[in-house]
Amino acid sequence: MNDHPAVEQRLGLVRWLTGHRHGIEGYLYICHRISGIVLLLFLSLHVLVTSSRLFGEETWQTLMSLTHSPALKFLEYLVFVAFAFHATNGVRLILIELGFAVGKAEHPVYPYRGSLHKQRPLMIVLMVVAAVLIVLGGFDALRLGR
């Protein structure tokens, strides 16, 4: 351990948004965290709203009428977007974290093409699935089909 005075410069959460330029997987990392927080907040809110039934039918009906407003419908759709992305990207992460889709160790030959390239087809397929789910959900939730 040296005794030099030093100034801390850990980037913290700022790194997630404004740090260095990210690769695709870096952006997915950020989106996964944000969508996770959105889902957690929704779940808490959902439990709170549902438990309002304890305070009588009138309270319940009042809250339910609020959920039919277009703004809340749109927010609900955003929750679905977060869910669709988080679920599909989560499948990718589970597979990768079990050691699948990243390939075996190989001789590093320049230009290096490592695990990021190996898992990219899986990432593309799952992101297409997420996009399809989001579009279909949009037709249903926002009544775009009518």
Binding site: L93, A105, S115, L116
Partner: peptide
């Protein structure tokens, strides 16, 4: 605690691919 942002492998100047090593380690 690695969640595969892959930034380590992108910047590694020697092609070591730490992101792959960590996933294989987890397995």
């Amino acid at each position: 605690h690695c969640h595969y942002a892959g930034e380590c492998s992108r910047v590694c100047p020697k092609g070591v691919d730490p992101a792959r090593a960590l996933q294989l380690l987890r397995r």
